[in-house]
Write a protein that binds this DNA or RNA. Structure first.
Lengths: 107, 107
DNA sequence: AGTATCTGTACGTCGTAGCTTACGGTTCGT
DNA sequence: ACGAACCGTAAGCTACGACGTACAGATACT
């Protein structure tokens, strides 16, 4: 009963730094150092965030020489989008009984 | 450049308890006490979470006698959905150059 | 009026998430 | 083979957020 079964993809996007990383990767795939260079946090911090995003299925990594290129995972993003879609549809049902109870707030 | 301009609607959904509240309200509008009764946290805790969700524009409240009924706000949910849509579209652009760099990972 | 019910807020506590620094491992270049 | 560049992980510290308890306000009921 509405236990939500979190993929913890939401927990991943709950942090502003991680949202910034996702926004960067949405533009173009980048390496860890490149990301750290555009963010106000250190490179190891970016590395830790990327691990969380990867576990959440939001990004994928690929070794390229000594560097490691991360890119956004459309499947993970689509999963979250579908959940919002569900919430949106159910909320519409709750809204089709607007003014079900007459509001007499002002005596 | 990818500063993300957070509505902090994401910060609101970053907490598991708040996601559970949203999931409950997606089914049907409820009062504070009803929500607290279905969640493993106290009533004041629910009240604090509802304040955050309200500030984020994800829920709306309505006085009903001595109770206060909260319901999901479809507009706020749709806003988050649109942002994911943007990420998804941009990621598709990043994906249409798959295998741009030949991977010689195994010597 | 008095009481009961429902709610919001202040406050103090505790856990934990995020960050930096330091270190070790892997790959490319000379 | 040596050094440089890039990355992941461990340890440690700090700060913030979530929670419960206690209190105050508002409304309905008798």
């Amino acid at each position: 009963m509405a236990t939500y079964q979190a993929d913890d993809g939401w927990d991943a996007l709950g942090d502003p730094s991680r949202r910034a990383i996702v926004a960067c990767l949405a533009e173009r795939p980048r390496a860890v150092g490149e990301l750290a260079q555009e963010l106000p946090i250190s490179r190891p911090a970016v590395s830790q965030h990327l691990k969380i995003l990867k576990d959440a299925g939001l990004v994928t990594d690929q070794a390229a020489g000594t560097r490691r290129v991360y890119r956004l995972n459309p499947a993970g993003v689509a999963a979250l989008r579908d959940q919002l879609e569900t919430f949106w549809n159910r909320a519409l049902d709750s809204y089709q009984d607007v003014a079900e109870q007459p509001t007499e707030e002002i005596p």
